[in-house]
């Protein structure tokens, strides 16, 4: 790489990107990592849809999914600390059972008790959600610590009820991050639903803007955020 390279134009994000775009970008990164980890656990390719961010009154959220009475298995997590956030991984009950069977494939079907299935589903949820949080935390250099996972098997609407009551208590507008994926072999989707609180949104957006606003190339032609690296070794790699 040429040492006297002219620095590229810096992107002025102040008015170009709003907070939600940045949130969506960070979330998409997290969702990508989550899907990769799911694929690694199941040894199977996983399709992922482009994630979306919905901004709407809390009582209209069930209309996005239209899964009213379907019985689902949801692994639920919250963030510890001041910045609150509810995260859920949802699979239909039949699909989650299939996934559990894939996870405990070494054991025969008779040995796979319902307790073991529950535990496997919870574990899978924990892995996926933690990698989602890890990716976001790594990118934004924040600390995101979650509570232990909680598995709930109930109909979709009644699970969303409690969370939406909480959203409605806080504000009249809920922000929902919605990522969907499915196994190649099956036809039912899994959902990764996140309700970031106002505080977390602001925190992530601030960090994301900082990252976008920085001078992309320093004088010697290297990305400025590679502080930890010795410039010589980086050049050698390139």
């Amino acid at each position: 790489m040429n040492a006297n390279m002219v620095p590229l134009k810096t992107v002025n994000t102040k008015d170009k990107f709003n907070n939600l775009d940045i949130l969506l970008e960070i979330g998409s990164m997290g969702a990508g990592h989550a899907t990769t980890s799911l694929s690694k656990v199941l040894h199977e390719p996983i399709k992922i849809e482009v994630p979306r961010v919905h901004v709407l009154p809390p009582h209209l959220v069930p209309r996005i999914y239209e899964k009213h009475d379907t019985v689902v298995a949801a692994t639920f997590m919250q963030l510890r600390g001041a910045a609150d956030c509810d995260i859920m991984l949802i699979f239909e009950q039949g699909e989650s059972k299939k996934i559990a069977k894939l996870m405990i494939a070494a054991i025969t079907e008779e040995e796979a008790t319902p307790e073991m299935e529950r535990s496997a589903i919870e574990e899978m949820g924990s892995i996926v959600l933690c990698s989602f949080l890890n990716a976001m935390a790594d990118f934004t250099l924040t600390k995101l610590v979650s509570t232990p996972p909680q598995l709930i098997i109930d109909s979709f609407d009644s699970i969303m009820d409690g969370l939406l009551i909480k959203q409605a208590l806080c504000s009249e507008i809920a922000v929902v991050f919605d990522a969907r994926f499915k196994r190649y072999a099956s036809s039912t989707e899994g959902f990764l639903i996140t309700f970031p609180s106002d505080k977390l949104q602001r925190k992530l957006a601030k960090k994301g803007k900082k990252w976008l606003n920085r001078e992309i190339f320093t004088q010697n032609g290297l990305p400025s955020d590679l502080i930890g690296f010795d410039s010589g070794s980086v050049k050698a790699r390139m």
Binding site: Q78, Q150, D154, I159, K166
Partner: peptide, 15 residues
């Protein structure tokens, strides 16, 4: 009026 979540932070159990 069920209590679906065991412990939901920011929302009392008795909502």
């Amino acid at each position: 009026g069920a209590n679906v979540f065991l412990n939901l932070k920011g929302l009392g159990p008795a909502i």
